[in-house]
Each structure stands twice: as C-alpha cells, then as structure tokens.
Design a protein around this nucleic acid. Structure first.
Lengths: 297, 297
DNA sequence: ACTCGGTCATACCTATGGAGTATAAGCATG
DNA sequence: CATGCTTATACTCCATAGGTATGACCGAGT
C-alpha cells in the first residue's frame, strides 16, 4: 500500500465512482482502477463491489477506509506541525527576564507573542542581566528581556522601549517638600543605593556618569542585585536611588518617587533602554519568531 | 511524501543513522539518503541535521515524525481491521432465536462465539421460527437459532444438538402418582396443548405422528405460539403437553415434567434437533464465522 | 426492442523515478 | 597521520505509474 492508493481508496469511497474519483485525484480512470485492484490483491481483500454501473464499499473496505482517513489526516497534521515548528510558531521558548523588565516590558511582550503564537510553550526564569547573558550562551534561556545596551559578540539585541529615570526618596527626605522634577545636582549630598556593578550590566557606571555630569562623585552606601532590594533599602531611609520609571510600580511604604530633571543630560543617560537579547547562532526558531512578532524592525 | 519516505524518516529518527536505517528498511543507503533529501526539499524543511558522523533530528523533524508514527500505526490498524472484518471477526451480527432455544442453545453458543470473536456487535431478536426464515431471507437477521429441520432452498442449516422429549403434566394429573418415564400411550385420554402449526415449523405435525404411532388421535384443545404459553396453559390444568427437555427449565407453579418413554419411537420423533440457519447467499462474513466457530463440521 | 451514453476493465506504450553499485568526501579515533 | 566509519554524489537499470485507445457491459430513453 502506498499513499497514492490510500488517497484513491478514500476518493472512490466518497464518490462511489471510479471515474469521478479519478478526476478528483487528477489521474485518468484506468490507473486508478488498476491501483485499487492491486491494493485489493495485495491485501487479499475486496474493498469495493463494482459492476459496470455502480460501486459499493464492502464492510472490509469501510473498516480500512476509516483508518486510512485517520492516517491521512495525521499526516497532514504532521506536516503542518513541522512547518509551524520550523517557523517557530510551535515548540518551546525559555524566556529570561531581569531587573525591572517584569514591571513593564515582559507582560506586554509576552501577551503580544501569545496572541499570535499560542502553540509555543513558554518557560520563564527570573535572573539578573549578567546571568541572562551566560544563560543565553549556554542555552538555558532562548530570549532575554533586559536593559540595553549589551556588548557581547555572540548576542544580538533589539530595542523595544525606553523609560525616563526617576529618583526614589525615603520618607522625610528634604527634597520631598517640593513637588516636581528633581535635579541631579540637588542629590549631591545624598547617599546612594544602587545595583551591583556587574559585567555587561552598566547601570552602575551610568549612575556615576550622571553624577559627574552634575559635578559630584556620589557616595554609594549599598549595592544590591535587584530593583526590589534597592527600593527596599531606600524605604529604610538609608539613601536615595536613581531608577527606571517603571520601578515606580513598586509601591513601597516609606518611599516616594520624583521624576529626574533630564535637562542638560544626554539622552543615553537620561533614558533607560529595554529590549530583547538572543544568541546570534543556534537560537531556536521560536526565539527568532518571538523577536519578529514582538519587536519587528 | 509517500509511505516509503514516511517509513524512512521514522527509521532514521530511531536509528539516528542513515546506514542503519537503510539496512532496517531493506534498501541500500544512497536511495534512503536521497529520499529523505527529496522529502526535505518537498516540505521546504530540514528534518535532520547531519554531518559525516552523526545525525540529529531537528525540532521540525520531531514534530513531523510524531504524527507520521500515528499515521503508520493507523494504517496498520486499518489493514488489520479490514482483515478481521472480511474474516467475520469484526462487524455486526443479528441473531434471531425462537422457541425454546433460549433455554439451552442460545446462551452457550453466544458465549462460545463471544470468547473468540469479541469485536462483533451482536443484536438479538426473539422471533418464532417462521418469522426467522423470512427475516433471514430479507436480511433482518443473519443467523437463526431454531428447531431443525428447516426446508427452504435459500437457507442452509447446521445441526448443533438434540434433546429428548418431556411431558408437562398439570398438578393433580393422574400420571403424577407414579414417577419415572411416561409412555405416549398413557396420554391417550388427555387433552393436548401444543404450538401453532406454522409453515416450516413442524413440531405440531410431529406431535400428531407421535400420537398416531401409539394408536390414537390427540384431542388438541389449545394451540399457542410460544413455549411459555404452552406451559402456562398446562399450569392452568387445561391439558398436557409434549415439549423439548429444555422446557423443564421453565419452572412454573402447577406444572410437573416427566421424561417421555422413547422406546419404540423412531429417533427423529423422540429427539428434538436444534441448530443454526443462515442464508446460502449474501450472509455476512460474521454469520459464516459464527457458524464455524460455534458448530464446526 | 434497440440504440445511446455512461460505467468499469483491459491492453499497450512511455517516461518518471526508485533501487542498486561504485565512489567520493569528511570527520572521528587510534 | 592513517584507518574506518559515516553521509553524499554519479550513473545505470528497470519497475511501475500514468496516459491513450479500446473493449465489455448495463440502464435509460426513444
């Protein structure tokens, strides 16, 4: 038995006519007749009862055809499934997210992706940016959601959106008496809480640049890995912090946020850029699909 | 895609080697390599990643192969199913049973058949013998369980077993004072209850022959269609009845059974023969299978 | 009753392509 | 570096799927 015979048999069973079935299968009638006769001989079973004017399906034929239909549709499904897998619309995708991306970037991106690629099984890992880069290289994650820029020759990135900076001030801080943006220079005497300086994650150095631009070197009292930790320590009254605006969503008792006055600060310092990262080589199709669906060029 | 390619793909995925897969498929390696390359080209998808020393299945390949396996096994199942259907081991079988066959013949035959042909859907119809013959000819039933002999040129029969005759006597009948077999001649003065005389069903005429053999003409007071009715009317005290031994299983208040003394009675009259009947032409395979399983020659 | 139109089966030819053998090319392992 | 395994390529042969032409058969319609 081969696929050709399978399709022929199904067509004859549906048309109850060799001629019509042949037309449907885009072959002439004699080859179809012969193919079916050969199949019957191969199986040693009569599948159709036919005389010169009518065709009936035998019980054995019905039994066979029911399963042939199943086989044909499984095949069709398989091809479609393979296509979707190759296209990255089906399969698995491991997403790493870090820093404050969870507050703004991740939910909207994942929702957007899910709505157009519902067959992809997502797996999430919260991890700091540095770990993300290593995780990308080792295949632990396929896509990283993180702060840009990243400098790694094996990693490709794409910008998604940027946020202004805000200043987190502890309850009782003198600057809270005035409303409106806070100038960097007015933080000259404050103590700073910030992220740990890690390779590839440059928020720390950006803070130093910001302060120097305003003519002072910040006094950094604590360096912790996560946004939650930074804001938590600010809440303790230990100091102030400069953070991406989405950190404002972390409503924590004892902490108030003010926009940072961005006048006279170059954009690459006053805006935090977020985006995607993936391996240039060996990234699964789902990752590339994610990139294109979520952040088309 | 054709079946050949499907089998090749599955073999390569399982062996992770073109050479071994080719051996398993009983072809040499080059045709297999080519077939798979052609399939990949046809689908526009890479199914295997291969270098000169190792073969890996791509994600798309895995997706395809999963469904190909389903298709292949559906096909195998279909062929098997068709074979069983053609052989009469699968499908439907309509069984008609009549008279007293339900007391002995039917349960044992059906159990025997079920144990060896569990895929056949049975359908039962209780019907008198005459109706069975017509039902067989019209295809309402495929197999009849009935009293033999049947004389119909389109119907074939096979003997299964025979029973002796018994006499059903109403409570208070004089012959009940003695135990042991009852001679036909001692019923000379009794009134008789018997089956309706119907074409093809010859119990009635057999009773007349029995009585005449003992030198009397029976006085028949009631003629009813079923064994239950005959025994019921005996229970009313309206007369006696001669019945197949299995009728004894009809334990009815006011009725007692005695063996019929079979001495000097020819066997065709003293024994009731039961068996199967089916159409000589056009009987479904399940009916023929039933006959051979249940009453092999 | 007979012709006509439609059906499925048969005969035969052509050409596609599947299978084989021989061989090359590439990468591990010793 | 050589050997031995792998997969890929080149080329030939023939089995067979497909086509055209035709035959056999049956039902419908005149």
């Amino acid at each position: 038995m081969d696929l050709r015979q399978m399709r022929f048999v199904v067509a004859v069973a549906e048309e109850l006519s060799f001629t019509k079935a042949a037309a449907r299968c885009h072959v002439s009638q004699p080859p179809l007749s012969r193919a079916i006769r050969e199949l019957e001989e191969e199986l040693g079973l009569q599948l159709f009862e036919r005389d010169t004017h009518s065709v009936r399906v035998t019980l054995a034929g019905q039994a066979l055809i029911a399963d042939v239909r199943v086989a044909l549709s499984a095949l069709e499904k398989g091809v479609e499934s393979a296509r979707r897998t190759a296209a990255g619309l089906k399969g698995a995708l491991k997403i790493g997210f870090g820093g404050s991306t969870v507050y703004s970037l991740m939910p909207s991106l994942v929702r957007r992706f899910r709505s157009s690629a519902s067959d992809v099984d997502l797996e999430f890992s919260a991890m700091p940016v540095l770990s993300q880069i290593e995780a990308l290289r080792s295949g632990v994650i396929d896509i990283g959601l993180l702060r840009l820029p990243i400098f790694d020759e094996l990693i490709e990135t794409r910008f998604v959106h940027s946020e202004p900076l805000v200043v987190a001030l502890p309850e009782g801080h003198e600057l809270l008496s005035r409303s409106g943006p806070v100038a960097m220079s007015s933080l000259r005497t404050s103590k700073f809480i910030t992220y740990e300086p890690t390779r590839g994650f440059n928020f720390h150095s950006d803070l130093l640049a910001l302060c120097r631009l305003s003519g002072f070197n910040p006094e950094i009292t604590h360096q912790v890995p996560t946004t939650e930790a930074v804001v938590g320590i600010v809440a303790c009254g230990e100091g102030v912090a400069v953070l991406p605006a989405s950190a404002e969503r972390l409503r924590m008792k004892g902490v108030f946020f003010r926009p940072l006055n961005a006048k006279r600060i170059p954009e690459h310092l006053s805006q935090v850029r977020f985006g995607l990262a993936w391996c240039k080589e060996g990234a699964p199709a789902t990752a590339l699909q994610f990139v294109e669906r979520v952040a088309p060029l």
